[in-house]
Design a protein around this nucleic acid. Structure first.
Lengths: 346, 346
DNA sequence: AATGCAAATGGAAGCGCTTCCATGGAAGCG
DNA sequence: CGCTTCCATGGAAGCGCTTCCATTTGCATT
């Protein structure tokens, strides 16, 4: 059967040193002779010893536990690609850094969402928190978590959080700008924009960038119409239908994410339009769905997995206090326009 | 600042009882007068006391920690819908039951995958393990985990594991059968089947069910061709192309999952085929992508989130030893054929 | 040779909880 | 009425680790 795991004392005994010395070796401590260190490591090896994280946490007050919190409507079936990829990247970094991560899905806007998050970190003694949008812009929440002594890294903050707290993300505003420039270059001049929910500030930046590009060309609000969805495929189909009926008759539909773009594509198909001949459509994120729909979607690639990884690395650096300045840090990763087959000259 | 969390002793002091009594109350113990119990609970409330899970685990030997392990090629970008939904369901159940869950992505077939999983559960002191395919069919691994004293629940086991260990899943064989019957009913008689990887035994059952239906109609191997992919969109496009070039000229392509079906759809579009007029295509899982592609995919719905939830519930029941027979249990949830727009009479 | 100081080690005291065992009193029994 | 039995409670001993502090050792200074 199981046969009880060896403890630190077993290692100490076998290597002929005190328990405390083993602890030092295990924690990369200073002041241990190489000879002793080697002896201890050898004993660790032979016994196949693994520290008991619970005991370490209890004694040391460091749980080495992180939490990843994301919102998603409990009924919208999948947690989206975005969250899943973020999580995967974060998980990998945790593995590499010897941390563990609790994942919690807290539906947004429920009255007790703050309470639930706070409870999670206090009850489980989490040392760090990764906040996905739209929580990454919830400054009240962030302040509250910080006040508990738990470090925070925000993913894709869009508003006041950016610069004020540690974060990772891409330049959403530039992404929106790039899309607009591309379409303008193709000769389009009447646009529909499918925006996301208001709270999602970084997605709003995509709109802002889009608008800036248009303004630079002297196009004003009369040449485009903005509709707000909730990032789902369904809202993409509904809203795109409204856009297609709009008196402006847009020649291109720009979407704040890929799922809505897929919805727009589907709505266009349903009307018998040929894409991209009759209408150009763009997305944002470069989720797998972007390559799967027909025709494959022109979109803005975002390195989501890398974002998750960076978030953890940043958090751990902050926790160790090593290799990081005291001021809030924002790690901006590169985005890239991916030209596929839903855009064409007008 | 933080101000240190209250401990069990604080609660004991405030309610005028011994620490043990508080512990008893907290653990739903017997032999406590109602009056005392109420007094303790009140103190807990007032202090906003939360047990320290690490201390509890250290003292009691019960970590209340579960692990969820899934395989996915480290480079195939997203962890798929299937795993993500499974995880989400499991996470929800954990929340409800007061357990925590570690999520680990262990790429399949790496030489040390068994070692990594074993290490995870011993090092983190996990009490239970949820194994997604194809690990759910890895009986050697399962036996090894069980030998460590860690309970296991398999998700969608397909081979010897089913019935031999605790598990949850749908009736994959019946699902495959249903698809075949549907297509047969529409007048199809020449089929292509895109199967998954060999190790994924429950996906093989889909093929088996499909074959059984054909056999019942007296169709034999001459009327269909089976190709093996790896469940990805890409393999769907490649394999479907081969199928379309095949001398058999199938009128319907049946896929072992939705991603491959989406790939097949895309390959068909690329050749200018009109779906479903020129070709019928079916998937399996009813992942979000099934509704997103154009035209939306006829597929077999699988309650993946519920499966994850059930897996945790089953695991916890086994851990508590309550409300469960000693023999292995298999919880089979319902599947359902979802008729959308990629199937038509031939 | 005496002094100092840093590096290397160990002893002891917990971290916050549960488990085992002991205690006192109320109830049950002949 | 003395005995066992059961219930409700508390005392004490750890779970496996880290932290604080004391001690020992080596070696450069004066």
């Amino acid at each position: 059967m199981t046969g009880k795991r060896p403890t630190i004392d077993d290692v100490a005994r076998l290597s002929g040193v005190a328990r405390v010395t083993v602890s030092r070796v295990l924690n990369g401590g200073q002041n241990v002779r190489d000879e002793v260190r080697a002896r201890v490591m050898q004993a660790v090896e032979r016994l196949d010893y693994k520290v008991n994280p619970q005991a370490r946490s209890l004694a040391g007050g460091a749980s080495r536990l992180l939490a990843f919190v994301f919102a998603s409507d409990p009924e919208s079936d999948p947690n989206s690609y975005y969250e899943a990829a973020l999580e995967l990247g974060a998980l990998r970094a945790c593995l590499a850094l010897g941390y563990q991560m609790l994942v919690q899905n807290v539906p947004d806007r429920t009255p007790d969402c703050h309470k639930r998050i706070l409870e999670l970190i206090t009850a489980q003694r989490c040392e760090g928190l990764i906040l996905a949008p739209p929580y990454s812009d919830d400054m009240i929440l962030i302040e509250a978590v910080l006040a508990q002594g738990c470090k925070v890294v925000t993913v894709s903050p869009g508003g006041g959080s950016r610069g004020r707290f540690d974060g990772v993300g891409v330049d959403d505003e530039a992404g929106g700008y790039d899309v607009a420039v591309e379409l303008l270059g193709l000769g389009h001049s009447r646009f529909g924009f499918l925006a996301g929910i208001e709270d999602h500030l970084s997605a709003n930046l995509r709109l802002k960038g889009f608008q800036r590009a248009l303004a630079e060309r002297g196009l004003d609000q009369a040449e485009y119409v903005v509709l707000r969805g909730d990032f789902t495929f369904r809202s993409g189909t509904h809203l795109a239908a409204r856009l297609l009926d709009h008196p402006l008759r847009p020649t291109a539909i720009v979407c704040a994410n890929d799922d809505m773009a897929a919805g727009a594509l589907s709505a266009a198909h349903a009307r018998g339009l040929t894409i991209p001949r009759d209408l150009s459509i763009t997305g944002f994120d470069d989720a797998p769905v972007a390559a799967i729909v027909w025709p494959p979607l022109t979109t803005v690639h975002q390195p989501v997995k890398a974002l998750g990884q960076r978030a953890v690395e940043l958090l751990v650096a902050r926790l160790n206090g090593t290799n990081i300045e005291p001021a809030p840090v924002f790690h901006q990763l590169d985005h890239a326009l991916v030209r596929r087959q839903t855009t064409a000259p007008n």
